[in-house]
Design a protein around this nucleic acid. Structure first.
Lengths: 345, 345
DNA sequence: TATTAGCACTCGCTTTTCTTGACTGCTAAG
DNA sequence: CTTAGCAGTCAAGAAAAGCGAGTGCTAATA
């Protein structure tokens, strides 16, 4: 199957862009008029028919204009779309916003989510850093209230996990410090497998209770959303005409609330691929059936050596891919920079 | 203005319950037929007209049945509604679910949110414990990665706050321990005001950087949502017919995403009132304009002496108040029990 | 005085019909 | 290969008609 002619590419690009703007089927006449094409609407009609034959376009009904198919969007994103960078002043503003929270890492995540939602006008998702080879760096036990104790676990990657435990009896802080110190001496630097091996030694000692949790947390650390996942801009989505039917809206919201699904999606797409760039997933098909009629633009941040997280936006098929890709790239690069800066002395 | 007659109360109660079930305007004939009333539809019509005169009902249009007004719901909730407890097996199941996560306090919150959403079929919200008179109990500094340091602050109430800081240089864990110890010796037991007073002593010492954050956290601790607020069941809401118009849905979602609003609402209603019971807020009017056409059922958990949080559900005006109140009460009591148990030795 | 049967009236909803006009695909000429 | 011209298609919108659930009122009844 030969590629598209230059003119077909032009027509497809114009049509997709126009449709993304207007959300209405695009007609041959409209294309000629709006973009001052130097060939007639009849010619455009022929090209449209050809593009429809290739599976890039479809007509909602016989006498309507054309609408891109998922395949059409994919071709557009891969071959036709140019970059649509955020304007420099906006970028500066965002950099400034990050600068203002430079001392509080947790704010980086929520700010990223908020920035993405605001500038893409759709929903965003941001996961915390996580590493694939979790090793224990350090734990701390902090008495909070009665038998409740906060267990803080820090991994080699810098990832922080915490859990409030209810122990069997009340311990003063000094004893908790001692317990923590014992575990640190014993298990620091170990990964899940090694922890498992020394597990039997711990059995029936006073450390058993806490140790079990450390063990379990390290095992779970591989799951990307083990920390808090930030979301924003949910309400934005409902403004898009494709979610005017409440059914669609509900479906999408459920997708968004479903941790497992997102987990799988993010980790597979972002972490298993070696390409560090921006990934665009357009609608569900075979692999990602559940995505349905939503598209996803995601990128990872951090570094392969230490720890990585993902930032991304989710919207209808008809989303501003060009601007979206630029925005996601900008934010993920910014995050990577911030993190690498915060590691240097 | 005299009270309602017994028969008017009966008619109002039946109508509200029926409307909550069906979401359709209720006619006089329907009431007589469904509930085998021993007076005629004409009589019911007279009573309906009287109730409409009182502002408890209204007709969507001239020849339609009646629908409750906000006032109508309020009267129903205050005077007419009985208890509609969850069935015992369901209660046992929920208790069992809590039992399974008894060692992890953080799970209590997310489980509460999930239980409430599931059994009320609408959205839920759960805030962590927080105290009004925050005093510093203990801090810890944990090196995570490069210049990043996790600051964990534990208040007298047992509330935990944490923040990842980016310090100006890299410190080994031992030095961080020493710093933390210094601050603990100096400031343990102090409240916001006392911390402010010793602030000047800290100026220009190596502790300044960390101390500033501790100071700030204690001040902010009074805000209820300073910890993570758990939400669930958002998608449930969209199933309700009142949110079929995307505008309404969007509005409600925005309300739900707006932290400030919820904060204000929860703290004012739950904490400023002395009554520890379940509060029902029906639609926005003067005080809570923003609530619009949503209702809220909330209760606090914990104890006034130590720390309190709030659990609640949010839905359309037409929600199952009776079941809702029972469910919220059940969950909040359960949480209070768990917490008080976890404090005893 | 309170209740109720009877009846005319109202008005949103559904269905039907008609019209409009924005497109297309095809054909034949340039 | 391109394009003007034209017949054909079909959703969307407006207008009309009928339906029917439900009311308010009135007059008779207990």
């Amino acid at each position: 199957m030969a590629g598209l002619t230059e003119r077909q590419k032009l027509v497809l690009a114009l049509l997709v862009r126009d449709y993304i703007d207007t959300a209405e089927p695009i007609s041959s006449g409209r294309l000629v008029a709006n973009y001052h094409l130097d060939f007639s609407s009849a010619t455009v009609r022929n090209e449209l028919a050809a593009l429809e034959g290739r599976g890039f376009l479809l007509q909602p009904y016989t006498s309507a204009g054309r609408v891109p198919t998922k395949e059409g969007y994919r071709y557009f994103v891969q071959k036709l779309m140019g970059a649509d960078e955020l304007p420099a002043p906006i970028k500066d503003m965002i950099r400034h916003q990050f600068y203002q929270v430079r001392h509080d890492v947790d704010d980086w995540l929520s700010l990223s989510a908020s920035v993405l939602a605001q500038h893409s006008k759709i929903a965003s998702i941001v996961t915390p850093l996580h590493t694939e080879k979790a090793r224990l760096k350090h734990i701390a036990l902090l008495s909070t209230r009665g038998r409740q104790v906060l267990l803080v676990i820090i991994l080699n990657s810098g990832e922080v996990h915490q859990q409030t435990l209810v122990l069997d009896e009340v311990f003063p802080q000094e004893q908790l410090d001692a317990k923590a110190e014992q575990i640190n001496l014993l298990a620091s630097g170990m990964d899940a497998k090694e922890l498992e091996e020394i597990n039997s030694e711990i059995q029936d000692t006073p450390l058993e209770e806490v140790f079990a949790v450390v063990n379990q947390v390290i095992k779970q650390a591989v799951v990307i959303s083990s920390g808090e996942v930030y979301r924003d801009g949910l309400a934005n989505m409902l403004s898009e005409p494709e979610f005017s039917e409440p059914e669609k809206a509900k479906q999408t919201l459920e997708l968004f609330e479903d941790r497992g699904m997102m987990d799988d999606l993010l980790s597979r797409t972002v972490f298993e691929s070696d390409a560090p760039g921006v990934h665009v997933i357009i609608g569900g098909e075979d692999t990602w059936e559940q995505l349905g009629d939503c598209s996803l633009i995601i990128a990872r941040y951090g570094s392969k050596e230490h720890a990585m997280g993902a930032v991304g936006i989710i919207g209808p098929l008809r989303m501003a891919y060009s601007r979206g890709v630029s925005t996601v790239r900008f934010v993920s690069d910014l995050m990577s920079e911030l993190i690498s800066e915060s590691m240097s002395s």
